[in-house]
Each structure stands twice: as C-alpha cells, then as structure tokens.
C-alpha cells in the first residue's frame, strides 16, 4: 500500500471522522432499538415485560417451589442472572456483529470496530431497563438497600469495560474464521456454570476456589451482589482486576480488527 493511501486509512480515525462515527453510532443505536421495537405489536413494552416475566418465573420456582432455598436465594439469583445476561448476550451478539455487516463493509469505508460498539450500546441500553426493573423488584422481595447501594454505578463500570473489551475481542475473528464463533459459544456456556450465578463462592471446594477468584465474570456478579444485597462496598482490587482484563482484551481486539480489516472486505462468504 502506498504512503498516501496509508495516510487515508489512518485518516479514518482523525478528529473529524471520529465525530462522524460517533454520530453514526448514535443514530444506528437509535435505529436498531426502534427496529426491534417495531417488530412486535407491543413494541418497547417488551423490554419491560420480557425480563419481568423471566424474573417472575425464577421467583416462583426458586422462591416457592424449591422450598429450602428461601426468598433470599431468589434475590441472589436475580442479581446474578441480570448481570450474567448483560455480559452473555452482549458478547454473543458482538461475535456476530462484524460478520453480519460484511455486506456493508463491501460498500462503504467504515472502521469495522464500529459494529461491535453499536451492539454494546444497544444491549447495554436494554440492560439498563432490566436493571431498573431489578431495582424495583428487589425491595418488593424484601431486600432493603443500604447506603452502600450507591456504589452500584461504580461497581458496574468495570463490568462495562469487560464487556467492551471482550466484545471487541470476540468480534475480530469470526469474519475470517467462522469456527471461532462455536468456541465462543462454548466458552460462554462454560462461564455460566463457573461464575457463581447459581451458587455462592464459599459453597465450592477450597481447591477449586480459584475458578471463582480469577474469573472476571464471577467478580462482576459478586460486586453487584455486594452493593445491592449485602450492603458492602465493592472490593476495589477485584474491580481493578476486571477493568484491566477489559482493557487488555479491548486493545488486543482492536489490534486484531485493524490487522484483519483488509481481509474482511475480500473474504467471500
């Protein structure tokens, strides 16, 4: 590639362009949310109903059917599942994001990293709606928030960074190696079982405790439970650890995307 053509590509990230990509990102997020709402009769109400129904089923099953665990367990499960769903759905969607938009990249010059970012914004918006429901439901279920609950935004920030990093990381390869998508799905399934959504860290044998201690998803869930259920401030070491994993994954992901972007437009699917 010649020097000037190279300058052109780097120019994709200059100030003016960056602002345009931001405008595009904003509008695409709005457009995607609107499209999704237009697909059903009740539209946006489903963003409320779907998680609400889901949580009600869990409440019924674990709060009543499974007598022993008690209502405390239902709240414990709610928080775990809401955080897990946010991570899982966003990362899974990101893995498809560039691949699903290859036709677009063949017609117009865009930074491919834009597509996972769009997905992260739309899914995070939907998560915020679910979070709102959670915050209303928990007191109804008998949980009383303490002042420590004000830590919530800070406790969720590293999770957002983790999602951002992991999302960029998983988006890079599927367009050129579709098999990676299957690996990502398997890893996500495995993570669901080792992230303490259904059990407490102290309920697993001592020698396997590291699975939870070093698993960033488990730490994200634990932080959220600390501030919402236990009335404890989040552990700053684990927040820092999660955030740095997010940053490392994000940088790796961005570098891979930039490296592979010439291949994206040439790959014949």
């Amino acid at each position: 590639m010649s020097a000037s053509s190279h300058r052109n590509r780097v120019g994709m990230f200059s100030g003016g362009m960056l602002f345009r990509y931001f405008e595009l990102l904003k509008f695409r997020v709005f457009a995607d949310l609107k499209s999704e709402a237009s697909r059903t009769y009740l539209g946006m109400l489903w963003w409320l109903f779907e998680p609400l129904l889901y949580l009600l089923i869990l409440y019924f099953v674990f709060g009543h059917l499974r007598g022993g665990s008690g209502e405390g367990f239902a709240a414990f499960l709610f928080v775990g599942l809401v955080i897990w769903q946010w991570i899982r759905s966003t990362v899974a969607h990101c893995a498809d994001s560039i691949r699903n938009n290859m036709h677009m990249l063949r017609q117009v010059r865009l930074p491919p990293a834009l597509f996972p970012l769009i997905v992260i914004c739309t899914d995070t918006f939907k998560f915020l709606v679910v979070l709102l429901i959670l915050l209303v439901m928990l007191p109804i279920m008998g949980v009383s928030f303490t002042l420590q609950a004000l830590w919530l935004p800070l406790a969720l920030l590293p999770t957002l960074l983790l999602i951002l990093g992991a999302g960029l990381f998983v988006a890079a390869l599927p367009p050129v190696i579709p098999d990676v998508k299957l690996v990502i799905d398997t890893v996500l399934t495995a993570l669901m079982f080792v992230s303490g959504i259904f059990f407490r860290a102290d309920s697993i044998p001592e020698k396997y405790r590291w699975v939870m201690d070093f698993n960033p998803v488990a730490l994200c869930i634990t932080s959220a439970r600390h501030v919402l259920l236990d009335g404890v401030a989040p552990d700053s070491a684990s927040l820092g650890y999660v955030a740095s994993i997010g940053v490392v994954l994000g940088v790796l992901g961005l570098l891979t995307i930039m490296q592979l972007s010439p291949r994206y437009t040439k790959q014949v699917i």
Partner: peptide
C-alpha cells in the same frame, strides 16, 4: 448505491439520515 444500509422499520427520512451518515456525511 441506491439502498445503502436501508432499514425497513425506519421512515424514509430516517433512512436518508442513516445512509448519509454511513457514507461519511456529517449530520
């Protein structure tokens, strides 16, 4: 391109904005 990035659930006006942004024009 006569239909770059068009989305069926958006209005004509919104599709023009989206397509224009995709093509690199400012809002």
């Amino acid at each position: 391109n006569l239909s770059l990035g068009f989305m069926p659930h958006l209005s004509g006006r919104q599709n023009v904005i989206l397509s224009g942004l995709l093509q690199g024009f400012s809002r």
